[in-house]
Amino acid sequence: MLAEIIKSIRKFTDLSEQEISEFTEISKIENFDPKSHFIRAGQIPVKFGIVVTGLFRYVYISQEGKEFTKVFMPEGSFISSYSAMISKTTSHFFIEALEESEVLIISYNNWQKLKAQNPRWNLLLVKLLEKGYSVKEKREREFLLLDAESRYRIFLEEYPDLEKRVKQHMIASYLGITPIALSRIRKNMGA
């Protein structure tokens, strides 16, 4: 379990065993049941995490109750409502567990102390923010330039096993279409 977390961190920057140890010492493991929330909309976030096992999604819910899935976050993903956390404002979205999940959590205050003691942690932060920005930019481009079937094909390529783990209405909300439209696309593709 810890080895997988270290592997996730080292995808972004090569930290020493001592530095990894400092990180894990100020972290804790927390379990989440399906449909529970890591962060709720309207809450001021004070933590971020790394998904050890399980699956989460970032989801906006309109006043009418309509869901808009922003992203799916499987094992090895860093999860947070980071902009709300750093500005000490409320999150606009939920981070919902879709399966039994285990997350390594670090408080924002502990993270700030860690970065102040060792500037190499800022490199990890920059790498994570760059990755997040790149994903956001790519997703926006797909929504602006591609049709729903093309977006679905990209979803299948990027998340090859996720379709078996996620309900169809959640995939539809991720693609920006209705479940009926997704059914038609799947039928046309022979899925």
Rank of each mutant, 00 (worst) to 15 (best):
D161Y: 13
K88R: 15
E25F: 00
Q112T: 13
K113E: 11
R57Q: 15
S134Q: 08
K70C: 11
H169C: 07
L129E: 04
L123K: 14
S91V: 04
V166S: 10
H169D: 14
K136G: 11
S87Q: 15
A116F: 03
P179R: 14
W111Y: 03
K115I: 06
F32V: 04
V126W: 01
D147I: 07
S27G: 02
T178R: 12
I154Q: 13
I86K: 13
F48D: 06
S8N: 00
S101L: 08
L156I: 14
W111N: 01
P45G: 04
K136N: 11
V52A: 13
V52Y: 10
S83N: 15
Y60I: 02
M1D: 15
E30R: 01
K88L: 14
I61L: 00
P45L: 06
N188G: 09
A148F: 13
S80L: 09
G54C: 03
T89H: 04
V46H: 08
R40D: 12
Y133D: 04
Y58E: 12
F56R: 08
L175K: 00
A148W: 15
A181E: 14
F68Q: 14
P119K: 06
F93Y: 15
E22Q: 12
N118F: 07
F32K: 06
H92F: 00
I86F: 07
S173V: 02
F143S: 02
G65I: 10
L123F: 10
D33P: 02
F48V: 04
K187S: 10
I9Q: 10
E163S: 11
L104P: 03
L146S: 14
F155L: 09
L123N: 10
L162T: 10
I95R: 05
E158Y: 04
E157S: 11
L123P: 04
W121A: 11
V59L: 09
F94G: 01
V46D: 13
V126M: 06
G132K: 03
A191E: 05
R57T: 07
D161W: 06
I105T: 10
I26S: 07
R151L: 02
S183K: 12
F72N: 08
I177E: 00
K131I: 02
G176A: 12
F48T: 02
D161V: 03
N110Y: 09
N122M: 01
V59H: 07
R139I: 01
L15E: 13
T90G: 09
E157W: 01
E158H: 08
A97G: 06
I29R: 09
K131Y: 09
E157C: 01
G54V: 05
Y159L: 01
L123R: 10
E142H: 07
S87R: 15
K7D: 00
S77I: 05
N31C: 09
K7C: 00
S150E: 14
G49M: 03
V59I: 13
G42A: 11
S107M: 03
L125Q: 05
L145P: 01
E157M: 08
S16Q: 07
E100F: 04
L2G: 13
L128P: 00
